[in-house]
Design a protein around this nucleic acid. Structure first.
Lengths: 181, 181
DNA sequence: ACAGAATATGAGCGATTATTCGCTTTTGAT
DNA sequence: ATCAAAAGCGAATAATCGCTCATATTCTGT
């Protein structure tokens, strides 16, 4: 009952060539998502656009969903990269200034790759393995909440939890819609 | 070149039995959307859950998208039904009171069928024929805007367009997230 | 009771999709 | 130069999907 060694090695890239393949696949997935939409992103199509065979795709990804997850994660990392600096500064700012910076940051984050962001936010069905992918909102909520705790004396509100919820949700929705429409 | 009469009669229900079939199909679609997600909603599956044959499905709906549109429209009508009254009262209220009523209305609207609402708002890909289905936001935006115009003298803001955008977007996002989590 | 219209059925066709596997090519270490 | 491991290939298989149509059942007016 020996398990097939040929089918197992999903996701293990040690040489440089293979890393390039993985990259090409993720990039192709993103391009298709943006230009043709989620349901046109079939495994065969992705491999074709990436200039790679389907077989190679399945050597590194267990399926289409895994590709999409990779795209989302890559986009989130890129976004954070361009925003991390400003986000650190906020901590030392008074609320008055902080909210303005945060809005600026939110806008900047949405501008990294608006089209991809839109697809991720509006077109990817949040089911199966896709629903587990952490959203921005939650991360932002935590950050904002700890900031408020550190500046509690500047505020009139007592329920920081509620305040965070209201602010993060509003800012997120506003910037999202503003940048996209 | 006679056109096939057998294929045409999509969507025409005169007897009661057929109306029940149509209802069962729409209901089944809604149930699948909520419990299994959009991409599990195949025509075969819908027919099966509805206790109807695929053939009957195609007698009344040209395809899966039409079913989904029906579900959305039915949900929007149901929502409006439970909210129409309060919405009419708002027009006569001063801003101070009006915003509170509007938020109450928004919450009530989201409570009609939260799970279905979520699927419609977050999971249905806005592509193809589905993207033409009018969203709530736009309708609400228009209503709110005309209200503001009627009460311009009570306000300090000049850009009613922007004010509407900010208010509608925020309220929508807040109630949506609040009811769901 | 009967005919024709309306409604329902489901096996099955063609297209598309995901996924596999035997095989070839490339790479890196010796 | 040699060879085993790593990476790559793509025709082939299997599953699923949307959809049709020949046929069967039910309804409705007379």
């Amino acid at each position: 009952m020996a398990r097939r060694p040929l089918t197992k090695p999903r996701k293990a890239a040690s040489q440089e060539r293979s890393r390039a393949t993985v990259d090409a696949l993720v990039e192709a997935t993103a391009r298709i998502l943006v230009k043709e939409g989620f349901d046109k992103a079939s495994t065969n199509r992705i491999a074709e656009v990436a200039g790679v065979s389907v077989g190679s795709l399945y050597q590194y990804f267990p399926g289409k969903e895994a590709l999409v997850v990779s795209v989302i994660e890559r986009h989130q990392q890129e976004t954070m990269q361009t925003v991390r600096g400003e986000l650190a500064e906020v901590l030392a700012q008074p609320v008055e200034k902080a909210v303005r910076t945060l809005i600026a940051v939110a806008v900047k984050a949405h501008r990294v790759d608006p089209k991809l962001h839109r697809v991720i936010a509006e077109q990817i069905p949040r089911v199966g393995k896709l629903e587990k992918v952490g959203t921005f909102s939650h991360e932002n909520y935590m950050l904002f909440r700890t900031y408020l705790e550190g500046h509690r004396d500047e505020l009139r509100v007592t329920d920081l939890e509620l305040a965070s919820f209201v602010c993060v949700t509003s800012i997120e929705a506003l910037t999202h819609n503003a940048v996209l429409h």
